[in-house]
Design a protein around this nucleic acid. Structure first.
Lengths: 369, 369
DNA sequence: ACGAGATTTTGAAACCTTTTATTTCGGTAA
DNA sequence: TTACCGAAATAAAAGGTTTCAAAATCTCGT
């Protein structure tokens, strides 16, 4: 079926040489225009709503589009518009259990709005991050969502992207001198709540295994801990704060050190759940029990903390929301390019499970095995 | 600096109107050609090695490209070539702990070869899968890596992709009637090894919590279990095989059922690690100990199985390798389009940890609490 | 019924590459 | 000197969309 070109003509003819089936392989706009009996421009206008098109014509075009299964080439469209329907996401490592939910949150929102995600891992490697940033430009993404590596100053790169109309949103932790859009969580508050909870349970010798202090989120969590301790008038004895990488190994090693302290801490606040998992292992290997001998609190509230024994008390944050919010901002920026930077701060929630108890009566004096 | 056009002229002139700095914003090929004093085509040939270019000219072009930081537009290139440097990956859900490594493996190989990954989640939803497949076409990916949802017959879609020169590789589990490239693991063998190990430890009443029997990998694991039991002359008593979803909840529920059986099984083989995690919880809630009262084996060998207590004995497979191999095939297919389908089968490895012990002396007769 | 003004529709240029056909060049053989 | 050859460089077309200026049509008041 195709339609005769012209104003009045709405009669349909059968056209033996160009069948719908043939097209379904890969039709282009020109063919759609021809079949619908309109010009290229009109098809575009119908598809994008960029101009008023009178109903009968509009209907004819849509009909042909439907029948042929036509989809505009994202490449041609991107080339012309200097902008594609892709959002690039640059994260340290998708294998780290915190990030998948962030990615999923962003992808869901992107997909729902007809956008696709390009995923890039940097391994916290500054050089790789820069390469990613540089080379992604030639794909003309609508925006970038970045979880930055430790040192990177992304200001220059971001400026260049913004000038070409692509949004750059930094999330979770912020690179130095960052002045663009951000989505973070209230790390100080979360850490404070966790520490305060331990204090309320009667703990006094509370250790913290802080994350890498190059990262703003790790810094803030330490700050929250410090503040809670100070508010309770508790002294942070030397050695009680250890810095570790955000992983199982870090937590394991530093906990071993903490357990040798005298008096031994009765509670440990881990800067994230992976550290807490490592701590749990170290605690068990030392022949101690959690929570009877040592209480433990994590941060992030990963799913897996519910699946282990004891279920881990943890400061929950929503990584899904983190990603989704970032995607939201990118999408908003497609429409509104120039408004001032947005800074969204998400809340946290202390999820009390099984890994915290009151301190043992005279734990401080008992030798550590 | 720019170069005078023409054969002999290699002298450099300064051109005040078009500086390198100006270009670094976003140069295009035309400007590069002008600056290097050559034609558009020559620049393309130099960049792609598509034709012989004499050394002095070649050098001049590269010099200008270097200085200006020029990068060809992936959109224009893709439009012209009907193929981009993107590989699309369609997986059920990145939040499921098995998939991140698969994605990472593919991304690493892709990135190393100048390709990018588009990531799509289907939630095992057939409809969503089809939508993804359909709409991704307009991005002209070089290939697709698919972990299919349960029912999908992808043959038609895949054919259409192949006709347009894009590879489609199915991995992990295969959709019905699939006749294209595949990367899988030897599930039958892995399950057989696990079951045999339990038998060697003296277990006789070995239960299996099988994954969804719609999935080929779950089918094969059950088959491996059956085979090992038969080879040992052991009967699979009714109720000993339970089908569950591939997650914590599935394992938890089915284990509760298994623990009510009389005689109670002395070992459970879980079809994946998440099921095993659920089983572990159910075992503990029943007041039983693992491995003293009940032995447990998982499948996948996720990182987290090492971090829990007891460390889980599991059939390890390399999801990273799975993804990387798939990406390798896609990249190969860019060069060699038409060779016959490849079927890579990766091996597994039984990782013996702490969750398996010999069966208790008279477990079968002890009431389950 | 006619014309001005408003609304639709059209045609062509532009976006940036790749690729093919063509031109140009230097050199060799007749 | 001319003709011709191979190699190297170029010019132009193509790929599919968006967008803008221009053309076509419609609407409505007289």
């Amino acid at each position: 079926m195709y339609y005769a070109r012209g104003r009045g003509g709405t009669e349909a003819f059968f056209c033996p040489s160009v069948s719908v089936c043939e097209l379904s392989i890969m039709a282009n706009m020109k063919q759609i225009a021809k079949l619908a009996g309109v010009s290229l421009g009109t098809v575009s206008h119908v598809l994008n709503g960029t101009a008023r098109v009178r109903e009968p014509l509009r209907k004819r075009v849509l009909e042909v589009v439907q029948a042929s299964g036509y989809q505009p080439s994202q490449l041609a469209r991107g080339l012309r518009r200097d902008k594609t329907n892709m959002i690039a996401m640059i994260i340290p490592d998708i294998m780290n259990p915190f990030f998948p939910s962030v990615v999923r949150g962003a992808e869901d929102l992107a997909f729902a709005n007809g956008y696709r995600m390009i995923l890039c891992n940097t391994d916290n490697d500054h050089a790789k991050e820069i390469v990613q940033l540089q080379s992604l430009r030639s794909y003309f993404p609508a925006g970038l969502i970045v979880i930055s590596s430790n040192f990177s100053d992304l200001t220059a790169q971001a400026k260049s992207y913004r000038e070409n109309g692509a949004a750059v949103v930094c999330i979770d932790r912020l690179p130095p001198n960052w002045d663009g859009d951000t989505v973070t969580i209230d790390n100080v508050d979360g850490a404070r709540k966790a520490t305060r909870f331990l204090i309320e349970q009667g703990h006094k010798a509370i250790a913290m295994i802080a994350g890498p202090q190059l990262l703003t989120n790790a810094q803030d969590r330490l700050e929250g801990y410090r503040r809670a301790m100070q508010e309770a008038g508790l002294l942070i004895l030397p050695g009680l704060v250890q810095e570790a990488s955000f992983d199982h190994a870090g937590g394991y090693t530093k906990t071993k050190m903490l357990l040798r302290l005298l008096p031994r801490p009765t509670a440990i606040f881990a800067s994230n759940d992976m550290i807490a998992m490592g701590a749990l292992r170290a605690i068990r290997e030392a022949g101690l029990r959690c929570p009877e001998d040592i209480s433990l609190i994590g941060f992030d509230g990963l799913d897996l903390t519910e699946m282990i024994t004891p279920q881990l008390t943890s400061v929950y944050q929503s990584p899904y929301q983190l990603g989704a919010t970032a995607a939201r901002i990118v999408l908003d920026r497609v429409v509104d390019r120039e408004s001032s930077p947005r800074h969204v701060v998400l809340g946290t929630e202390l999820r009390i499970r099984e890994s915290v108890a009151r301190p043992p009566a005279c734990a401080a004096n008992r030798p550590s095995r």
